[in-house]
Structure formats: C-alpha cells, structure tokens
Design a protein around this nucleic acid. Structure first.
Lengths: 337, 337
DNA sequence: TGCATCTCTGAAAGCGGTATCATTCGATAG
DNA sequence: CTATCGAATGATACCGCTTTCAGAGATGCA
C-alpha cells in the first residue's frame, strides 16, 4: 500500500533552520524583510523537508482562503468548460485556487446544497455562470457575505457582471440571412434564464426591423439529440429556409435531422449556430456561427471579482464582450422556389 | 457595493443555544449522541444565525480535509471533462469536495507547480488523469504522503489504477474492418503516455494476427484541426482505405480533410474513432467509434481512492472497464478496386 | 563615543474547530 | 432513599499558521 510519511510543519522547518516560526512565515510570505543569512537557511530547510504550507492553517489564521468558488450547472459542455478553464487560468495567475460546485437544476433544495458547498470553503469571492435557469436561481439565493460576479448572456440586476453581447451578434446574423433572400429566420432556443436570452432578443429585433414575419420559437433541450429531432420535423415544413440555433450543438443536431429528412444544407435550408464550438468548422458543411470568447469571459470574470473583493467595483458594474459572426458553408442564398 | 456581514462561528451558536462549543460540534457531526432538547436548541441557533462551519478550522483540528485533488492536463476536452464530472459526482456523494489542478505539459517545473497546488489543500487523496504525457509525468513525481489513483488507458506501475481496456476494443474494430475486405488499417495517434497506449497495442495486435501489413503510425496533436491536415494528405494516397483514429475529434477532423481532398467516407475510405463523443453520432456520416464510459471511470476512480484511503486497496490494484464498439455509417466494406 | 532611529526577530495570542478526558446528570437497582 | 453505572456534557488542550507587539541589533549622525 502507499507509504505515508508525515508532512513537515512550519515548526519543523523553523527548528531545522534554527529560527523562530514567524521568521519562516515571513520568508514564505515575503512581505516583511528577513536577513539574507536566515532566509537562505529557511529556504534550505524547506527544500530538505519538502515542506508545503497547510492551506487550512493559513486560511484560519489569516482569514483569507485564497479561494474562489464557481457555481455552475454544467462542467463538461463546451461553453461552460471553456469559461471554467478561463477562470481557473486567471485565478491561478492571481494565486487563487478555484473550487467548483455544481447545481444540476433550479430546484430550491438543490440550489441550497450547492450554495452550502460553495461556501464551505470560505471563498473570498464567488463566480456564478448564469447561462441557464439553474445558475440564475443560484444567483438569487446567494448570501451577501462575499462578493459575487455573474457571467452571462443576459442582464441580471444588483450584481457586477460580465456580459457577452449576444443580441448584437444575433441581429447581424439574422440581417445577413434576410439579405440572402430568406423570407424569415426560424429560431431554436436552449432553456434560458428567466426572461429571454440575448440571442432571442437580437433575433426578434432584426426580424421586426426588416418587417419580416416572426415565427414561433422552437424549444430544444441542451442535448444535441434534441436538435436532431427538431430537424426531422422542420424537414417537412417548406416554409423553413433558414434557422438560427441557440448553440452549435443544437445546430449540428439540427443539420443531421434535416439530412435524415432528406433536405440539404445549405441548398435547401441555411443553418446558423452560436458559440463556435471547436468542431463546428470541421462539419460538412462547416457551420456559420458566432464566435464567443468563453475563456476571455472567464478571465474578465476573475478580474471583475478581484476588483469587487478590493471594493473597487460595485453592483452596477457591467463589462461587455463583443462576439463575432463567422460566416461559413452552412448558410447560403435562399433557393428560388 | 456588496454588503458584507460577518459569518457566525461555532461559539456564537453555542452561546445563542446556551450550550458549550463541543456540544455544537457534536450535533454537527452527529457521532456522539446529544439530548433531544439541546439538539433542537442548537439546530435552531444554527438556522437563525445562518451558521456554516469553517472547512479550514475543521481540517486543521481533525486532520481530515474532506478534499480530493484531481491532477489533469485538460479540463475542457470531452473525455477529460466527462471523467472529471464523474469524479465530482461520486466525491460529492461521499461528502468530499474536489479541487482541480492543471498541468499543461510535462515540463518538470510545470509539473512541480501543479503538484504543489494540488497538495496545498491537504487533500486526503489524489486522482491523476494519465491520458497523456503530462499526466504521466505528474504521476511519477507525486509525493507518497497521500493515496493516489491513476485513471488511464494504459498500465502504470506501483499505483492503484482504473484502466479502460482500449486494447481489446481496438482489436475488435480492426478485425471488423479487415473482415470488410480492407487490406490493412492505418492508425492516427494522439500524443500518448510513455510507451504506447492501448489503442495502438490492440491495433497492431489485430493486424499482425491477421497477417496484414502494419503501416507507419501517423501522429496528430490533440487539436481536431490536425486531423483535418492529416486527412488532406491521406486523401492523395490510394493505399489508404481504412483509418483508425486515436479519438473522435481527430476522426471528425480527418473526415473533413478527406472531403476537402475529394474522397468520400465511407465509400472510398472507412474511418473509425475512439470515445463516442456526443456529436459523433450526429456527424454525416455518423462515426463508428468506441464508447468509453468516462463518468463511470471517474466514479470507479473515486471508489478505488476511498478504498486506498482506508487501507483496503494497494498498489497492485487494477480495475478494468470494458468499452464497447459502436458500428455506424463511417465504416463500410472496401471498394472493389 | 553616545543616543536616536530603523530593521529584523521572537514571544505570545489567537483563528474556528475537534479530541480527550474528567465530571455531572439521570435512571435504575438495591 | 442511597448507591451505582452508563450516557451526556463541559473544560481544556491543541491543529499549523499569521499577527500583533515588544525587544534586540544595526546604523546614522552629532
């Protein structure tokens, strides 16, 4: 079985180096100067004993956990995973450790447990991914004992926030599609926050501005297979010539469903997604989509949170990221009927 | 700015409930009985003060952090993300919190920093994802002060391990392809652990067993675009009629590259992947691949680690998961030439 | 050389819990 | 009513580190 040898403590190091415990602490935290002579001895002792400070003891004594907590409903889906990666990178650069707590859905009890888990480590700040109802519900039930930042695609009140301006990008996409001769653009959504997400808002605005009909919204789940099911249905509807999807995974599923139903993309139907999933440019046809810089979103989230933690930010703060439309093969001029 | 009110401590609760501090601790940990009367008072006080125990203080006093640490080179790629999700779920069920530390590559300094980060929280156990060289290097430089489990696609020595038996599945895949009339099967790998991964071993074994030629291995990176580049090259080589890829993302990239080069899948060339990425069944054509249950891998990893933590496991332990071949549209009988 | 002024260092007191152990309480038996 | 014993409770001592705070050395200037 694994050999277990006891971890050295700060007093082991102090003893070995022939200095007091606080002196070791000082060389560790390098804020108060320590004479070169002792400093070297301490460093050597640390090396020899393979000493690693106990984060728990540090947290307790300093009342600073150097931890940030992420609350999210999902860790493996592309946009979430990339955002989390961005957060973890930025946090590490600022010398913070990140813990993740997962809220599967917006059930109050589930939310409560996730919040408790998030706070059990006494984080100095919390980042909530409000891409969906679960994140949204969490945001509303967070204690106010610690600074919070929301990362999202739609506005939320009372909390500093980094927002991806999905709405403008969606408008651009829809406008482009209309210019290609499509009578209107259908829209498939993923379950959104309370109210409406920016993609939907932009989509509707662009249609109305152009005087185009606004079709009923089609609701899908987060599972790409649900896009396929929708695709099979839409394949039968000759009215549909262009579809904007809430994310790329749904779009890819949709394309497959359309093919299942005997339609061709983009000759018969144009399809656009949202996110620029790493596989979307490899699809046949490659997918027109909106590139969102999720890891940048995460990094900005951390920056905003650190600002809030040092009182340099407030609840009104709003940082906006401009996503970028990528026109690719899955969209084309409308067929002459 | 965000309102900050001070967190209640255990002695606030004790005072409010009119009991001693240890009594509060006992109702919290419910291991020693407490009279119903006091118990109720304590619970009420906890509720009223919105008290949440400090994990740091607990860790320090009990020498049990209730933390598990994952070391991984990647958090957003499919297989990794799913495994991490499985770990997090299983850990939570066992009342453990999970921290992740990322090793970007196998540079010794990078590895050292990741190890330090992983250990700073005094985890009670560590899970290493040894899917690649970075994870592998980490495993070799981990201190032995804490139980470790490796999650992997190839054998590693001296550590309890959960292994996906890729080799058998790869053999099955190659054998199937040969039976479809392909002269041989080419193989594209992703950067592997030292030595060879199970996919490659199984691939070679099946070819040799059938007396088929064993082509040179083609090396790709973890980036799906590298698969596309390979595809464009292979499209020009008439010898190539079947390709086994190290993972689905490469396979999807490859298919795109083949299409770019004017070849059809599966009519001209059969392609198979590894992982059963959620999008692989939606591709056109849908991808033949090997379904790996990553979240089960994570769950088993936690189970094994918990066993090791209670001395019920040892370094020789090896649990094996049998993945399952999924035959889909991207593979077909060889064209008559 | 003497004294004020900085620097650097160590002693001591916690941070918020848990573990140990002695004590008290309450119920039962005699 | 008292003796007895187990169950419930509280006092006390840390866990490993940081944070005062005061003292010891080193340095500068008169």
């Amino acid at each position: 079985m694994t050999t277990v040898k006891k971890q050295a403590t700060i007093s082991d190091v102090a003893e070995r180096a022939g200095v007091s415990v606080p002196t070791v602490s000082r060389v560790l935290n390098q804020v108060v100067p320590v004479s070169e002579k002792r400093r070297k001895r301490v460093l050597a002792a640390i090396e020899e004993l393979d000493y690693r400070p106990s984060a728990a003891a540090r947290t307790l004594a300093s009342r600073r956990s150097r931890m940030l907590s992420i609350v999210t409903s999902n860790t493996s889906r592309y946009g979430y995973a990339e955002t989390i990666r961005g957060i973890e990178l930025a946090a590490r650069a600022a010398d913070y450790t990140v813990t993740i707590s997962v809220v599967e859905n917006d059930d109050p009890e589930v939310v409560r447990r996730a919040v408790t888990a998030a706070f059990s480590q006494s984080p100095e700040g919390v980042i909530v991914l409000t891409f969906d109802p679960a994140g949204d519900a969490t945001l509303r039930s967070l204690p106010t004992s610690v600074p919070v930042v929301a990362l999202s695609g739609a506005r939320a009140d009372g909390v500093p926030q980094v927002l991806i301006d999905e709405s403008t990008a969606a408008e651009e996409l829809v406008r482009g599609l209309l210019e290609m001769g499509h009578r209107t653009v259908h829209h498939i959504t993923v379950p959104a926050v309370h109210g409406e997400d920016g993609r939907t808002t932009g989509w509707r605005a662009a249609l109305q501005e152009a005087g185009a009909p606004v079709p009923d919204i089609i609701e899908a789940t987060w599972d790409p297979q649900s896009g396929r099911a929708v695709g099979r249905e839409l394949a039968a509807d000759p009215q549909v010539t262009a579809v904007l999807c809430g994310n790329d995974e749904i779009a890819l599923g949709l394309m497959r469903g359309l093919v299942d139903g005997g339609r061709r993309v983009p000759q018969d139907i144009s399809v656009a997604g949202f996110d620029d999933h790493p596989l979307s440019s490899l699809w046949v046809p490659s997918l027109t989509t909106v590139r969102q810089d999720f890891s940048e979103l995460g990094a900005r989230g951390v920056a905003t949170l650190l600002a809030a933690m040092s009182d340099e930010a407030d609840a009104g703060d709003l940082h906006t990221l401009r996503p970028e439309v990528q026109w690719r093969e899955s969209t084309a001029v409308a067929a002459n009927q």
